[in-house]
């Protein structure tokens, strides 16, 4: 092989290595974003799993005692992901175990996926604008029943209806049946936030009722408004 050809091959390999390194660093830079998204995604599975198992496929209702915009931890089953392999003499506290003959191990520990109340906001009812959110907040403050749709003045309810619907799967069918939307269209749920992460570095993950996840700037467009993301919780003095 000629010297020129060897030089060409070495130059090609080095160019590829440089391009690969740039590509790798760029993908690596996404890891924190990816990790936060994965954590939020896992969290979003908790109310979704609850809805699939509940009668009428209702999503969890807000805690009737605290009445705060948060997932009711006592009402939804705790979530876990697979953690370290279980050792006969564990060093720390074990929350839960996954038992079975897995990769020749008797058990794996499970890491809890905890929706920390102060870090996530969950709304329980469907709203698609700041006006509808304010109607929801006020209704809850005034002691509205949390286990059902909440009647509100015409135009202040979900998508301009006369009530704020409890979050449920296939809400679009109920909305169409009630004449709020013309036909059952899942796209109608595209702008109904279910879960919002506490903003970090000017952004936060939002989970919508149509199972869409999006990282949005804060403050930003609906629902990333201070009134919704950081508004005072809803408990009235009496309820507290």
């Amino acid at each position: 092989m000629s010297k020129g050809r060897i030089t060409l091959i070495i130059a090609g390999v080095l160019t590829f290595a440089a391009a690969f390194q740039i590509a790798h660093k760029q993908r690596l830079a996404l890891k924190p974003y990816q990790d936060s998204a994965t954590q939020f995604h896992r969290l979003s599975l908790l109310p979704r799993g609850y809805a699939q198992a509940s009668e009428g496929e209702f999503w969890p209702q807000l805690d009737p005692t605290t009445r705060v915009f948060a997932l009711p931890l006592n009402a939804i089953p705790r979530g876990y992901t697979v953690g370290k392999q279980f050792k006969p003499e564990p060093a720390g506290h074990i929350d839960a175990l996954l038992l079975g003959k897995i990769n020749n191990s008797a058990a794996y520990t499970l890491k809890p996926v905890d929706p920390i109340v102060s870090e996530y906001r969950y709304f329980g009812h469907a709203f698609a604008s700041e006006k509808e959110f304010i109607a929801l907040r006020d209704a809850i403050r005034q002691g509205a029943a949390l286990d059902a749709d909440i009647p509100v003045p015409q135009g202040s309810g979900t998508l301009g209806a006369s009530k704020l619907y409890r979050l449920r799967n296939k809400l679009e069918e109920v909305l169409a049946k009630d004449g709020v939307i013309p036909v059952p269209d899942r796209n109608a749920l595209n702008n109904i936030p279910v879960l919002i992460e506490k903003p970090h570095d000017g952004k936060a993950w939002v989970f919508f009722l149509n199972n869409r996840m999006e990282q949005m700037p804060y403050p930003g467009p609906f629902p990333m408004l201070p009134s919704i993301v950081e508004g005072q919780d809803t408990a009235t003095p009496a309820a507290q």
Binding site: A19, F20, Q26, R27, L30, Q34, A37, F40, H41
Partner: peptide
């Protein structure tokens, strides 16, 4: 292929980057 796979422009089969 190697570069498209490595740059954060293409979705991988494995679930881990689906959220992106």
């Amino acid at each position: 292929h190697a570069l498209v796979y490595e740059f954060p422009i293409s979705d991988h089969h494995t679930w881990y980057d689906d959220v992106l």
